[in-house]
Design a protein around this nucleic acid. Structure first.
Length: 268
DNA sequence: ATGACTTATCCAATAAGA
């Protein structure tokens, strides 16, 4: 089974690239993040044989799972998923809203989650606390599923697991995405019985994100923040970053991560 | 250079991204 994850930075803007990529790579399951729409444009992907589970609330966020090997038990948001109170003109009216950042489904016997972990904005910002709390709640919600059978949680985690996962650690001192607390949240998640499926780089380093600005991609100044975590009931035969998808006209600022796996059919 | 792009939205200036 081929499973992939891709932060497309608007599925509407990326639709031609998405269709082209599906035809080229032919994933069985594709997890998308930042669809940035309330209405997923599903015609083209359905013509290609995919069912779609999408959770989207409009301008921001939005996650989806596309599957051509079955799509069952769709879960929009995980149990007790925290909300975020965006700053309001009257702060007293700010109400936490559960955002479109998580969708789960069972695809051909594999339990899959597509995540768009909150960015955090800056260390000490309320969004940073939201990010950490969100990951704590995620861990609790996923624990039973990790123990139950073949399981993969993937998506844009907005955390670089180690200093090797950013182009220059010195450039990130004091920034989000690299702090000890964020990395500990990832370690806590792995402690459920998950491992980081590190993709091989077809060229250069195995980064998955490069800022649009200042030619960062062509300078190799990227980060590995799009991750695939799998449990012991999943045997990985290959994993790679599709850097080609970051090139050319109208790319996302993220590249897809592609994983080929077998279900070993034994409990973890 | 507290920047550089890109996105959707109140279609124009803004918020957010990481």
């Amino acid at each position: 089974m081929r499973v992939a994850t891709w932060n497309v930075n608007s599925v509407t803007a990326r639709l031609p690239r998405l269709h082209e990529w599906l035809d080229l790579v032919e994933p069985d399951v594709l997890c998308l993040q930042e669809t940035k729409t309330a209405d997923f444009p599903s015609d083209g992907v359905e013509q290609r044989g995919y069912e779609v589970a999408h959770v989207g609330d409009g301008r921001w966020n939005g996650v989806a799972i596309l599957s051509r090997v079955g799509l069952e038990d769709v879960t929009a948001a995980f149990a007790e998923q925290p909300g975020y109170a965006n700053e309001d003109e009257d702060a007293l009216l700010a109400v936490p809203v559960v955002e479109s950042r998580a969708v789960g489904a069972t695809c051909g016997g594999l339990r899959v989650w597509s995540l768009y972990v909150p960015n955090g904005r800056s260390v000490g910002h309320p969004h940073y606390d939201y990010k950490l709390g969100w990951l704590t709640a995620l861990r609790a919600a996923l624990a039973p599923e990790v123990a139950a059978g073949p399981f993969v949680v993937t998506g844009d985690f907005n955390i670089a697991p180690t200093d090797d996962d950013v182009w220059d650690p010195a450039a990130f001192v004091g920034s989000t995405h690299v702090t000890a607390r964020e990395r500990q949240a990832l370690a806590d998640l792995r402690a459920l019985g998950l491992r980081d499926v590190e993709p091989r780089a077809l060229k250069g380093r195995n980064f998955t994100y490069w800022d649009y600005r200042a030619g960062m991609f062509h300078k190799g100044m990227g980060m590995r923040i799009d991750l695939v975590y799998a449990n012991d009931a999943v045997t990985v035969t290959d994993a790679w970053v599709d850097r080609e998808a970051r090139k050319g006209t109208g790319p996302s600022d993220h590249a897809p991560v592609v994983v080929d796996l077998d279900l070993t059919n034994r409990g973890p």
